[in-house]
Design a protein around this nucleic acid. Structure first.
Lengths: 196, 196
DNA sequence: CGACCCTATTCCACTAATGGAATATATATG
DNA sequence: CATATATATTCCATTAGTGGAATAGGGTCG
């Protein structure tokens, strides 16, 4: 599991508090590995126990003390060996596709509505990734190149989804589906109507 | 959570044992919602308790008795109302992207190797989806259209990933990276070497 | 005949992730 | 002045998912 290492990556850039890490997750790393702050704090505790990070408490008044974490040599080692083990690509896992698969048992109008919602959302996300990508500009150093490439996955991902949604909306439109149904009997199968 | 409904979708096609459902997950539904057999059996138990399915035990000798599940009216209702609630699109969540993001703290050669591995894998998957898609042919009924559309997400997904891997391999090649590093000082920032 | 896969289910220990309540103050916005 | 937002952390109940052991007879392949 990678939350651990995602957090280490964040801290490897420089000392950070749990709050800082959570913020960074919201802004950047979270594009590739979402986590809630409660998860992050818990994980930081474990990292500290395993001495992959050092913790230093900074006195503050008015707010809880700020605990700043710094990566240790062991932590850097852990990151390296993590990066040497092959990781599993993310599997497709989406209710929506299951609903499409079982389209006969499902509310078709609702499906269409959800398609529109998704289309919007994917367009938004696409714009977000694109904006972040633009900031990086021409990638003069390795670090920028890495981030650029990572963002490009996001851009492609959201773009394909948006494109697919558009297509799906057409092919599942009332008119398109009506045409379909009329042709069905060709196959000659005793088509079960789902009435009951 | 949707394992429950994915299983219901499977059973809505006709009575099935846990074993049958597991098989179907391996072959089709699992493309969109992976689950282990242990999960499926557990979930079936819950579905039975909630009376969304009926269970009927078939006597067998030599093997454990086969328990065949049939969807109930309540089960069909549950599917419908599930399909009316909007579902969350899958978030991008991938170690690999985190590694790219933190590329300075990571083993670059290993990264390249893993890229090649992924490329292969995505090409395999792509071929798999494509094969399934071909079988559906021209989608004469709604049900086929749904499945076709679902598979097309898989096709696009794997295709984009494969394409991206190819690009990334080029842009992270030893030569490409060498050129980068030479240009770095332009920005004039005191570039931290990661030596320690 | 041994190795292995197929059918078929149950059970369990474990890890990971969700999601939100609780606590406490400062500053900004309307 | 009320409300919201930002800072900063802790704790916890719950759900979801992993991964494999255990049981047991059947067929297939070399």
């Amino acid at each position: 599991m990678s939350l651990k290492y995602s957090i280490l990556v964040a801290i490897s850039e420089g000392p950070k508090s749990g709050y800082d890490v959570a913020k960074q997750f919201d802004e950047t790393i979270g594009f590739f590995w979402r986590a809630r702050h409660s998860q992050i704090y818990r994980e930081l505790g474990k990292l500290k126990e395993k001495q992959l990070v050092f913790a230093e408490e900074m006195q503050q008044t008015g707010k809880p003390n700020r605990i700043v974490f710094t990566i240790s040599d062991a932590g850097r080692e852990a990151l390296l060996s993590w990066s040497r083990e092959p990781s599993q690509p993310q599997e497709l896992k989406d209710d929506f596709l299951v609903q499409l698969y079982g389209i006969d048992a499902v509310d078709l109008d609702a499906l269409r509505e959800h398609l529109s919602l998704r289309l919007e959302r994917h367009r938004d996300r696409h714009a977000q990734y694109l904006a972040k990508h633009k900031i990086l500009g021409d990638a003069e150093c390795l670090s920028d190149l890495g981030r650029q490439l990572a963002l490009e996955v996001g851009i492609r991902y959201e773009n394909e989804w948006a494109d697919w949604c558009t297509q799906a909306l057409e092919r599942l439109s009332v008119e398109a589906v009506a045409k379909l149904s009329n042709v069905v009997p060709i196959k000659g199968s005793t088509k079960k109507t789902q009435s009951r």
